[in-house]
Each structure stands twice: as C-alpha cells, then as structure tokens.
C-alpha cells in the first residue's frame, strides 16, 4: 500500500524488523499454532538500500527522457506536437527569468497547502468522530456518504456561484478533494480496530482519551498516513481542475493558456512541474510518516 521505512524501525527496536506485519497479521502470528520457540529472525534489509532504490527509480525517467528526445528530434513528431526536452527547459528558464514561473508554482502550491490542510483536518476530525462513536456513525454516516457520492467536480458551478472565482473557491475545491480520502480511511480504520485489543485494554481500566492514544491511534496510523497521501494526490488533481476552469495564475492556468497560444513547450513544462511538485509534497508526507512511527511506534502497513 504505502512504502515502509525500514531504517526507522531498525533504529528504534534494534532487533529484527517486524517487516510488513499488519496489526491483525501480527496477532495471528503470535497466537497461531506456533511452537514455543522464537520466530526465525526476519531478513534484515541491507544498509544503503535507499540509495540503490533511488538509483533504480531513476532508470525509467532517464529512458523516457531519451525516448522523448529521440522522437522529437528525428521528425516522428512535429515541434508543435512534441517539442524537444531542451526547448521545454528553455521555456522554463524564460518563464523563470520573467518571474512568472515562480508565481504560478507558488500560487498553486499555496492553494494546495491550504486546501489540503483544511480538507485533511476536517477529514481527520469527522472521520475520528464517525469511527469512534457508533451513534455518530448512525447519525451522520449516511449523509456524508451521500455527499461523497457526488462527483466532487460537480460542486464547481455552485462554488463559483457562492464563493466567486477568487482564491477561496479554489481552496475550497481542493479541500473537498482532500477531505474524502482522509475521512473514509480514518473512519473505516477506526471502526475496524481489533475489538479484542480494545476489550483487553478496557479490562485494564484504560478508556477514553487514553484508550484512543494507546490502542486506536497507533492501530490506525498507517491507514491515516495512506489516507493523507491519497488526499494530497487528490488535492493536486482538484487544484488543476479548479485552475483549468477559471484562473489567471497557477499551473492549471499555465496549461490552458499554453494550449490557447499553441505553446506545447510550456504545456509540457506545466505537466513536469506538477509531477515534481506532487512527488515532493508526497515525500514530505513520507517524512511525517517516519516521524509518527518514531513517536508512536506504529507498525508500518505495507
């Protein structure tokens, strides 16, 4: 599902890594028909696997870049269809020199930042409420489910009508996009926390907030993080949708503007920038994931 951070797990426990053990799986493992002998030490990942993985991950982009260069320079595609990589780079340099590039990148990042923060925050809060309280789930679950069934872009005309074409409507749309993945994963994960763990903790007098922080939160953290990552990806998706539909700045605007002016180089530049920004912000969430694992000692879900 998501990547795992074997380095943090290793550093923390100093023992064999419970690599790829889900909460439920671990329980089965511990109570199964295991003989009274410790499990064999799991395979310990080598150090430097991170750099090797990064190198391996670069192979396909390099091949694609070479392919792109070949196809655009040997006449398979016209420059209007597919300009050379160098042209795209120089278009980027030109935009950067005029100062436009940074404005597009900054305004888009800012919209995603606020939209994600608001949407994910609300998703966490409502997801926790619905997931922890059966009463809340019966009361509000169906309504939120119905709202979720509306394709989120269907809100656009209404948002434009109510909030106008300014920043707020775009941030709102990103927030809507970010809300549902977080809400869905958090509420579902909380509802599926092993009842036996909760009962055991309760039998030791652990309840309320302490039950939440000792059992429920660590149990759902891997799901929360994957929900946040989905939400971020969806946030970027909705950003572009919002900017395509009405904006004077931002990467989505750069896309439509370039299309209108036949600037395929800028169009490709915008797409590349979206890919890079999406990957960078996702990497930030990866850092957050490692931090939560150190803080709460959650088992990473793989």
């Amino acid at each position: 599902m998501t990547h795992q951070s074997e380095t943090t797990e290793q550093g923390r426990t100093g023992g064999p890594d419970p690599d790829g053990v889900r909460p439920g799986g671990a329980l089965e493992n511990a109570q199964g028909a295991a003989p009274d002998a410790p499990h064999p030490t799991p395979f310990r990942p080598r150090r430097g696997r991170g750099t090797a993985a990064a190198g391996l991950g670069l192979i396909i982009p390099v091949i694609l870049l070479l392919l792109w260069h070949t196809l655009s320079s040997n006449g398979t595609f016209t420059p209007a269809q597919l300009p050379e990589p160098a042209k795209v780079l120089s278009a980027g340099v030109e935009l950067a020199r005029r100062g436009d590039l940074w404005i597009h990148v900054a305004i888009s990042t800012q919209r995603v930042f606020w939209g994600f923060l608001i949407g994910a925050g609300l998703g966490l809060a409502l997801g926790a409420w619905i997931g922890l309280s059966r009463w809340a789930s019966m009361l509000a679950g169906p309504s939120i489910g119905a709202l979720r069934a509306v394709p989120s872009l269907a809100w656009v005309p209404l948002l434009l009508l109510w909030i106008g074409i300014g920043e707020n409507s775009k941030v709102t749309l990103v927030a809507i996009g970010a809300f549902f993945p977080v809400y869905t994963t958090v509420s579902a994960a909380l509802q599926h926390v092993d009842r036996q763990w909760i009962e055991a903790a309760r039998s030791f007098g652990i309840n309320g907030l302490r039950l939440f922080t000792t059992v429920q939160l660590p149990a759902v953290l891997p799901s929360v993080v994957s929900g946040l990552r989905l939400a971020l990806a969806q946030g970027w998706l909705f950003l572009v949708a919002a900017e395509l539909l009405g904006a004077s700045m931002g990467l989505g605007f750069l896309l439509t503007d370039s299309q209108d002016n036949g600037r395929t180089d800028r169009l490709l530049l915008a797409i590349l920038l979206l890919a890079i920004l999406g990957k960078l912000t996702d990497a930030l969430l990866g850092l957050f994931e490692r931090w939560t694992q150190r803080r709460w000692g959650a088992v990473s879900s793989t």
Binding site: A34, D36, P38
Partner: peptide
Amino acid sequence: GHAGHRPAEISGGMAQRASLARALAR
C-alpha cells in the same frame, strides 16, 4: 531476555506468558 521484542517476534507460549505478566502487573 525478550523485554524489547515485539509480539510478532516471540512464540505463542511467550506471548501468553507476557499476557499473564500484564494481568499480574495490575
């Protein structure tokens, strides 16, 4: 000798002993 181990790293019998110790801790 297994204080720092995770439950997935110990056997069923050890896990049950840990469970007994947890009950006695009370």
